[in-house]
């Protein structure tokens, strides 16, 4: 405990570093995943290709990816940019499937009635499909947020500063408190981001509050898909 009190500055700095590494990938992955997911949902062929590719991408272990990216894009191994790119890739890999599934989960009748009352192509997407898929997207983003925060710590072993540096430093110097502080801060940060997303959802998607069963409905929908 004494270690923690005398190193509050360090903890704060690492937390900020960590935020810099994990927030941009969260936003970027959403931005990239929506159009990709839309394309995946729209055409049968693109669905197979995009979802297989994202599945494979997601299967790639993070540490090796951190080493490969500099060789591809020319960033330096220790630069935050390198990590941000890698984390964005994982986020996209996860979110693409979520977006595609979310859009696919929009009731066909609702879509058709939107067409029938005169929505045009793009306005259907923006005003009907996207809002209706939004709860699913939000659930996906929450998973991305937690996993990104956790993954960002891995960069520490190659020297990129983050809360993960508390693990490597604590391990090398044999300071248990430092590692535990790092774990706690990582979990807290993940929970805070998750909470922020939930809050954002409450504000942007007020109608989902009424349907507390929507999560269960989602589960049920997925479960029937699987069992069919």
């Amino acid at each position: 405990m004494t270690w923690i009190w005398s190193n509050l500055d360090l903890l704060w700095d690492r937390t900020l570093d960590h935020l810099v590494l994990s927030v941009p990938p969260l936003l970027l992955s959403f931005l990239f995943a929506v159009p990709l997911g839309w394309v995946a949902n729209r055409y049968r062929i693109s669905r197979g290709v995009i979802l297989t590719a994202s599945g494979l991408l997601y299967a790639i272990p993070s540490l090796p990816l951190f080493f490969v990216i500099p060789a591809v894009v020319g960033t330096s191994l220790r630069s935050p940019l390198n990590l941000i790119i890698a984390l964005t890739l994982y986020g996209v890999a996860l979110m693409v499937r979520v977006v595609a599934d979310g859009l696919a989960s929009v009731d066909k009748d609702v879509r058709q009635s939107a067409v029938a009352v005169g929505y045009s192509g793009w306005s259907i997407f923006w005003q009907v499909e996207l809002p209706l898929a939004a709860p699913v997207l939000l659930a996906g983003l929450r998973v991305v947020a937690v996993s990104t925060v956790s993954l960002a710590t891995v960069g520490a072993v190659i020297g990129a500063q983050s809360l993960g540096s508390l693990f490597t430093d604590g391990f090398q110097r044999g300071i248990q408190a430092e590692i535990i502080a790092g774990i706690v801060l990582t979990v807290v940060l993940a929970l805070l981001l998750d909470g922020a997303l939930v809050l954002l959802g409450r504000i942007l998607l007020p109608w989902t509050r009424l349907a507390s069963t929507s999560r269960r409905a989602l589960r049920a929908a997925r479960v029937t898909e699987v069992s069919e």
Partner: peptide, 22 residues
Amino acid sequence: VDRGRSARPASGMDPAITKGTH
């Protein structure tokens, strides 16, 4: 199979199965 939205729990949709920690 390919439109069957896959038998695997969609990544992300079941946080309990899909885990982001590499």
